[in-house]
Design a binder for these strands. Structure first.
Length: 576
RNA sequence: GCCAUCAUAGUUCAAUGGUAAAAUAGAGCAAUGGUAAUGCUCAGCUCCGAGUUCGAUUCUCGGUGAUGGCACCA
């Protein structure tokens, strides 16, 4: 995907296009009032107050036609600097512009005018509306005024503009490709998971999806074992008192599912940490035990807003690949360097590129001293640098309990996903009074980190589905090999023997012996994106070979059974 | 939660104020096949509730769910 925002020329083009769209809408709906129309990563939008008029995508052709007319007319776009008084006078009938003007202090106020349409704007713009030729309106939605849910909702129209027809076509093509990869669609087609209206936001995992999940989770356990983690499983339901200690009862209650058990209230856990704290406190810890790395694939439930639900990307129950790390202050930096290397290894395996962002102390709502925050942020940043990463800083974006590093993954279509995170927690160790015994026999407070690599297993699988477009590498693929006997009857025995040998070697294999022509069965195997298809007929039976065709390739290759097994087993082992 | 759009066989979809066309998947029969669809037959559907109407799958309202955004967020 093209990042319009980072390309100065496209940026200007898109912003001018937003004005062009506003002008067209104003012509069609003279009562329209406009809030702001910025450029975003992919195009632009404009927030519009149309009173009772409702825009829908079916209005786009009309608006686009009007835009074309204005563009053809070719008015110049004229910049004008005006005084605040002049601005207030000129836009006196527009409450939205007045709001903007009244909030402008010590800046030059400029307007841009094209024909009859004038808009308050910082610019810059293209010279003339003539330059705006290759654009498309994409979607319409509601958006809160000033992004505040307490405010009224405006209508937001999205569009995008390019400097050539080819670039526009390319973009629209990528949007279509993304649709084809939609994990909700592929998940259904490949039998990975399902949704039911009886459980909105609660995915059902199907046979093939469970295979994928189990592979990922086993992989996770193996890698964490290598990294010196121990594993626990904490209950999904715990009493109110615990959530009061952790603070969730006061800060997160509206997102928790709560139930009466005997005479007490219990909550289903929205996070794993409080349970993890209890495990830590179950033992006395020596400084010699640190750093202590405790992992949990923890099933959590959160009552997410109904409108937020989205396939596997946003669900109400999910499994976090969580871990809590406890350490002494002087172990923090080394531990984070180690974590970053670990994250790197995992993401690389999936061919996912990533960037790291550091979120720092919030302006107002935070606990602990500024000195400790500054020191923690310094350590996080320095660990990134030592790992050879540049860090983007998001000032004030940290949690109230500590700063964090977020890992933003880029999938094969260039889209970004926030998955991994490393968070320093200055809150829970205090609340739960965590201690370890130091070398001098005194009790000390450990530093605690939360961290996830996948983020949630569900979301990560959703990303993988779209990233691979459903065609998983061999080691991840729920179905690895499909055996296709040319004639179900004649080649039956050979097919079963072959399957047995492959299964013996640890591969996931099915024989398709249905009474259908080879082409028919092969087509289905291709559509199910099964990595390896083995055709066996008279020739293969005769010389004990297999005919191999890989997903996505037309080429076929003849191999001995042993060579096939060796190469597939090697491929799985190397996680290719 | 908010705004908008949508809801028809397992799936993908057509049509209609007089209970619905098709493809694909499924079952049966015939065909014994060499790298993306063999033919025939059968069976299967209007999300839930109310209203308008002689009659509603179609119109209206409410509910539920989904999709695209907003707000929230792993």
């Amino acid at each position: 995907m093209i990042n319009v925002k980072e390309n100065a020329e496209l940026n200007v083009l898109n912003h001018s296009c937003a004005h062009l769209m506003a002008q067209a809408i104003k012509r069609i709906h003279p009562h329209a009032l406009f809030w702001v129309g910025p450029v975003i990563t992919e195009g632009f939008y404009y927030d519009i107050d149309l009173g009772d008029t409702v825009l829908s995508e079916s209005d786009f052709p009309k608006i686009e036609a009007e835009m074309k007319k204005i563009s053809k007319d070719g008015k110049r776009i004229i910049r004008e600097e005006i005084s605040k008084e002049e601005a207030l006078e000129r836009f006196k009938n527009d409450p939205y512009k007045l709001d903007l003007i009244n909030n402008m202090e010590g800046v030059t106020i400029t307007t841009f005018k094209q024909g009859e349409f004038e808009d308050l704007c910082r610019g810059p713009h293209v010279e003339s509306v003539k330059e705006l030729k290759f654009y498309k309106l994409l979607k319409v939605s509601g958006a809160y005024w000033k992004g505040d849910a307490n405010n009224k909702m405006l209508q937001r129209v999205y569009g995008i503009c390019f400097d050539t027809q080819e670039a526009l076509d390319q973009h629209l093509y990528l949007l279509e490709e993304a649709k084809k990869r939609d994990h909700k669609k592929l998940g259904k087609e490949l039998g990975l998971f399902m949704m039911s209206e009886f459980g909105p936001g609660f995915p059902f995992w199907l046979d093939k999806g469970m295979i994928l999940r189990n592979i990922l989770e086993n992989f996770w356990y193996e890698e964490h074992t290598k990294e010196g983690y121990q594993f626990i499983k904490t209950p999904i339901m715990l009493s109110q008192e615990l959530w009061e200690v952790s603070g969730h009862w006061f800060n997160y209650k509206e997102n928790m599912y709560i139930s009466d058990v005997d005479d007490r209230q219990f909550a289903i856990k929205p996070m794993n940490c409080p349970g993890g704290m209890l495990v830590y406190k179950n033992d006395l810890h020596s400084y010699k035990d640190l750093p202590l790395r405790v992992g949990e694939l923890g099933l959590v439930h959160r009552h997410e807003a109904s409108g937020a639900l989205n396939g596997l990307f946003r669900v109400r129950t999910f499994t976090q690949d969580d871990a809590h790390l406890y350490m002494t202050p002087d172990q923090v930096e080394g531990e984070i360097v180690r974590l970053i290397a670990f994250f790197d290894r995992v993401y690389k395996l999936f061919n996912l590129n990533y960037t790291i962002e550091l979120s720092t102390r919030p302006e107002e709502k935070y606990i602990g001293s500024i000195e400790v925050w500054d020191e923690s942020e310094r350590i996080l940043e320095s660990a990134c640098k030592k790992s050879g990463h540049t860090v983007k800083v998001n000032p004030g974006d940290g949690a109230f309990y500590g700063p964090k590093l977020d890992f933003h993954l880029q999938d094969s279509l260039g889209r970004a996903w926030q998955c991994g995170t490393i968070q320093l927690d200055m809150n829970l160790p205090e609340r739960f009074d965590l201690t370890y015994v130091d070398s001098d026999g005194s009790k000390k407070r450990p530093i605690m980190l939360h961290r996830v690599i996948f983020g949630s297993v569900e979301r990560f699988i959703g990303i993988l589905i779209e990233h691979y477009a459903g065609a998983f590498p061999l080691w991840l693929s729920p179905d690895q090999v499909r055996i296709l006997p040319v004639n179900a009857e004649f080649h039956h025995d050979y097919a079963l023997q072959l399957k047995e040998k492959l299964v013996e070697a640890g591969l996931r294999v099915e024989v398709d012996e249905r009474n259908e022509k080879l082409g028919y069965r092969l087509r289905e195997a291709q559509m199910k994106k099964i990595p390896v298809q083995l055709v066996i007929g008279d020739g293969e039976v005769e010389n004990g070979s297999v005919n191999v065709r890989r997903y996505g390739s037309q080429a076929t290759e003849s191999l001995s059974i042993q060579d096939l097994i060796d190469s597939l087993v090697k491929e799985v082992k190397e996680k290719r």
